[in-house]
Amino acid sequence: MAVHHETAEELVEEVFLFGRALKLAVGNSDSSLLPPALTGVLGMLSIHGECRQTELASLLCLSQSALSRQLSDLVEWGYITRTPDPDDRRAALVRVSDSGFEILERIKESRVARLSTMLGEWSEEQALAALESVRHLKDTFTDQARHASADYTLIAR
């Protein structure tokens, strides 16, 4: 059975507002460790692993120039390393350094502590139900985005 239009409309708004609320709740608590935008770049790179800057820009939906500035800061602070791509010496591979993994762990610990405090009156069952719902929503969005991207690639050929 399909989701009603009104339900989808409300869900769009709630998901948007949830994103804003999440930023307020846990995103700013660790900004003294690393600005949120750089935390996002470093986090995505830690999940994805070593890659070219163009690939990382695509994953983050950022322009090359915006990502380049962010990577420069992260390199300067020692949180990522750049090495020449052995397959194409004109390109570079970026990866998270040991210091980068350390700062990400500190940020994660800060966020988990803050969220744990905020959810202090929740039961474990409520938290697990929320986790399941958020994960299901994220997986649905990701699957649909991949489908749309694949369809666009086929059309572009």
Rank of each mutant, 00 (worst) to 15 (best):
M1R: 15
A91G: 00
H5W: 14
T39G: 07
I47G: 06
R114Y: 04
S65F: 00
D143G: 03
A148L: 13
G40H: 10
E9C: 10
H48Q: 13
E50G: 03
S99V: 00
G43R: 15
L33T: 08
M118E: 09
W77Y: 11
R82K: 15
R95C: 04
L17K: 15
L128Y: 07
E9S: 09
L17G: 01
D143R: 15
L154K: 14
E102H: 08
T142S: 12
R111M: 01
S99P: 04
A37N: 10
A145G: 05
W77N: 10
W122I: 04
M44L: 03
T117W: 09
V3T: 13
L137A: 06
L67M: 07
Q126M: 11
V3S: 02
A91M: 01
G27L: 07
L154R: 14
G100N: 04
F141S: 01
A2G: 09
L60H: 09
S29M: 03
S65H: 10
C51S: 06
S31P: 01
R90Q: 00
V75N: 11
A156E: 09
E6C: 04
A156P: 04
R106I: 04
A66C: 08
G120F: 00
D139F: 11
L93W: 05
H147M: 05
L17T: 05
A150E: 13
K138V: 06
G49L: 10
S116F: 09
R135I: 06
G19W: 14
I107V: 08
A130M: 14
A129E: 13
S46T: 04
I80E: 02
Q70D: 13
A130W: 12
R95I: 00
A37M: 12
S32A: 02
T142V: 11
R114A: 03
L42P: 09
A148N: 09
H4S: 13
V41E: 02
A66L: 08
L22K: 14
L154P: 06
L56N: 03
H48E: 12
T54S: 11
A21P: 08
L154F: 12
Q70W: 03
D139Q: 13
F101C: 09
R146M: 08
P84M: 00
G40L: 05
A148V: 08
M44F: 04
T81R: 15
R82Q: 07
H5C: 10
I80P: 06
G19T: 07
L67F: 04
L11T: 05
G40M: 07
T39L: 05
R114T: 11
E50C: 01
L56F: 00
Q53H: 08
L24K: 14
R20C: 03
R20E: 08
S68C: 08
S68E: 02
G40E: 12
I47F: 06
M1P: 15
M118V: 05
S32L: 03
L17Y: 09
L56I: 05
R114F: 01
A25H: 01
V26I: 14
H136A: 15
Q53E: 02
S99E: 09
S31H: 02
S110F: 02
L71W: 06
C61I: 12
G19P: 01
A8K: 15
E6A: 12
L62S: 04
V12I: 12
L60Q: 05
E14H: 14
H4N: 11
L137H: 09
S72Q: 13
E55M: 07
S149C: 13
T39H: 15
A8I: 04
F101P: 05
